[in-house]
Amino acid sequence: MKTISMVLIRHGESTFNQKNLFCGWHDAELSENGIRDASKISSAALMEHKMAFDVAYTSALKRAQDTLKIILKEIGCPDLPTKCDWRLNERHYGNLIGFNKRQMADKYGEEQVQIWRRSFDVLPPPITSDNPYYECIRSNPSFRDIPPEQFPLSESLKTTMGRVIPYWEQEILPQIHAGKRVLIVAHGTIARALAKHIENISDENIKSVNIPNSIPCVYEFDLEKKNLVGKIKYLADENFLNKQMEKTASIGN
């Protein structure tokens, strides 16, 4: 059986992650920890497992693009063909963007905030023009090619999958089926959306799927049958992986 690997990585910690803020489509930078982890966790794991790539995909957001650039430089292929597309953007967290998750939990209750964060089809409140990040999101030049009718005000995992999965099926998956080794560096919700689709995870069970920053996830595909082989494999020590998953699941402080 001839197989091909696809690697999926959630970007390193952003400045908004560091402050425990909802980020979504705000174009936050990587934190110092995020820059370090892209090298010391993501790149190191890829080199340890001798992973190589033919093409990379990322979003229109800097935190994912910068993570990818660091990784490609570290693994010795800074000129790898790369495609950036807004359909791999993090979900739009609506009017939650810019607010501290713990403060939102204190205001609306932990259950409601976790529903907004982890449910399949519940939309956060739509962003309004008085949100402090509304204008910089709407005017981001990286988003200028997004059709106005497709520019969201809020997204759930379900609606995010409405843009991610067609892109996966039409653009990325054919590359894998053609034998190309694909690297995707994107965001937490994008990783969950792809995991749900690829692994056929139910709407209920996806609530408990937490994919941490920086740790590479490897999917293996059968090139002849064009199907998934086995389960997702994380390139990390199990104790460290579980600790990071718990951190991702938590509302934080």
Rank of each mutant, 00 (worst) to 15 (best):
S202F: 08
A193Y: 05
H197I: 07
A186F: 00
K180E: 10
A186V: 01
V182A: 05
D222Q: 06
V182N: 01
N213P: 10
S202N: 03
K207A: 12
D203S: 09
N213R: 08
T189F: 14
T189W: 11
I206F: 02
N205G: 12
T189I: 12
E204Q: 14
I201K: 00
A178P: 07
V218N: 03
N213Y: 05
E199H: 02
V209H: 08
E171H: 14
I215V: 11
S214G: 06
L183C: 05
K196D: 05
D222W: 01
E204T: 13
N205Y: 11
I176S: 09
I184W: 03
N200I: 07
A178T: 13
G179A: 13
S208D: 15
K196R: 10
I211G: 00
A195W: 07
H197R: 10
N210S: 13
F221R: 08
N200Y: 08
S208K: 14
V218E: 07
R192V: 04
I172Q: 00
I198C: 01
I184A: 09
S208T: 14
E171K: 14
L183G: 01
L183V: 06
I201V: 03
I201F: 04
A186E: 00
S214I: 01
I201N: 00
E220C: 10
L194P: 04
S214R: 08
I215P: 02
K207G: 10
N205K: 13
N205M: 14
I198P: 00
K196C: 09
E204W: 07
S214P: 05
V209G: 05
S214V: 09
Q175I: 12
L173R: 10
D203K: 09
N213S: 09
